[in-house]
Amino acid sequence: MLDSRRNVLLACALSALAGYIDGIGFLHLGGLFVSFMSGNSTRMGVSLADGRWQEAGSALGLIGLFVLGAAGGSLIMQRRDGEVQSLLLLVEGALLIGATLCHLVVRPSGAVAAIVLAMGLENAAFQIKGGGGLGLTYVTGALVKVGQGLALAVSGGPRLGWLPNLLLWAALAAGSVAGGWAYLQLGLLAVWPGGCFALLLAFLAAASLPGEH
């Protein structure tokens, strides 16, 4: 999946987008996440233990929406034609722009739902046959691969095999900085540039040679 310059660049761009949107979502939801479901699962468990049922329900709802988005993305990628990756990114961009429109017409629940669906959907962008693929909206797995790659490097393996996964982490971290800053300036309207960026990536993905996904 990260076997070509095109794929590395696209994956890093999508991770940066995920970090940007998650930074916005984290501030907007007061500590819940729109793409990091491990964090939401922990928040749900702690809230249940503390008897904060509404907070636990909110975390569970976000998890459910994320899973629905991932399922939708997987269904799109099953088309297996040359433009399928671009189609996925077009849908993601439309969801993010739709979230902004929901915010403008004072439909906060719809805005959050569209954002979470978009984040779940994005993870199918590099889906491989059988349903596996590259996680783009969370980087725990990428950091594990960095550690494993470093171990291989010092034991005679590829010297820079860990670098693409480190770039994924750095892209998501940088995106979250940008998203946090944008939310402080614009509120949930900051999602709009993220949607436009997804549409731009859809165009660029279609214009470039299709990679393995």
Results as ranks from 00 to 15, higher is better:
Pro210Glu: 09
Leu96Met: 11
Gly72Ala: 15
Leu32Thr: 03
Leu90His: 07
Thr140Arg: 08
Leu143Tyr: 11
Val67Gly: 12
Asn165Arg: 14
Leu163Arg: 07
Gly31Gln: 04
Glu122Arg: 15
Gly120Leu: 03
Gly30His: 08
Glu212Gln: 01
Pro164Gly: 11
Ala99Lys: 04
Glu212Val: 00
Leu189Met: 15
Gly131Val: 13
Leu204Cys: 03
Ala173Pro: 04
Ala111Gly: 13
Ala171Glu: 03
Cys196Ile: 08
Ala171Cys: 10
Arg52Tyr: 03
Glu212Phe: 00
Met37Asp: 01
Leu152Met: 10
Gly131Ser: 13
Leu166Val: 05
Val154Cys: 09
Gly133Leu: 12
Ala171Pro: 05
Leu200His: 00
Ile21Ala: 09
Leu163Asp: 06
Gly195Met: 07
Ala142Val: 07
Ile24Lys: 08
Arg159Pro: 06
Gly133Ile: 13
Gln148His: 03
Leu89Gln: 06
Leu160Cys: 09
Gly98Phe: 11
Leu17Ala: 10
Val191Trp: 03
Ile21Cys: 12
Ala170Pro: 03
Leu150Glu: 00
Gly25His: 03
Ser38Gly: 03
Gly98Ile: 05
Ala190Glu: 13
Phe26Val: 07
Gly180Ser: 15
Gly31Ala: 06
Asn40Gly: 01
Leu201Ala: 02
Ala207Ser: 08
Cys12Val: 11
Arg6Cys: 08
Thr100Asn: 03
Leu204His: 01
Ser47Glu: 04
Val177Gln: 13
Ala198Asn: 05
Gly64Ser: 09
Ala151Trp: 07
Leu209Thr: 04
Thr42Cys: 01
Pro193Lys: 04
Arg52Leu: 09
Ala171Leu: 08
Phe33Ile: 00
Leu9Asn: 06
Thr100Gln: 05
Phe36Glu: 02
Val191Ala: 05
Gly194Ile: 01
Leu189Phe: 14
Pro210Lys: 02
Trp162Thr: 11
Met1Lys: 11
Gln78Thr: 12
Ala171Gly: 09
Gly30Lys: 04
Gly25Ile: 04
Glu122Cys: 05
Ala125Cys: 15
Pro193Ile: 07
Ala198Phe: 02
Leu9Ile: 13
His103Leu: 06
Ala13Tyr: 10
Val116Phe: 06
Gly110Ile: 13
Leu152Gly: 00
Phe126Cys: 14
Glu83Asn: 13
Gly133Pro: 09
Leu209Tyr: 00
Val67Cys: 14
Gly187Glu: 09
Arg6Lys: 15
Leu104Tyr: 05
Trp181Leu: 15
Glu122Pro: 05
Leu48Lys: 06
Leu184Glu: 15
Ser35Gly: 08
Leu2Phe: 10
Trp162Gln: 06
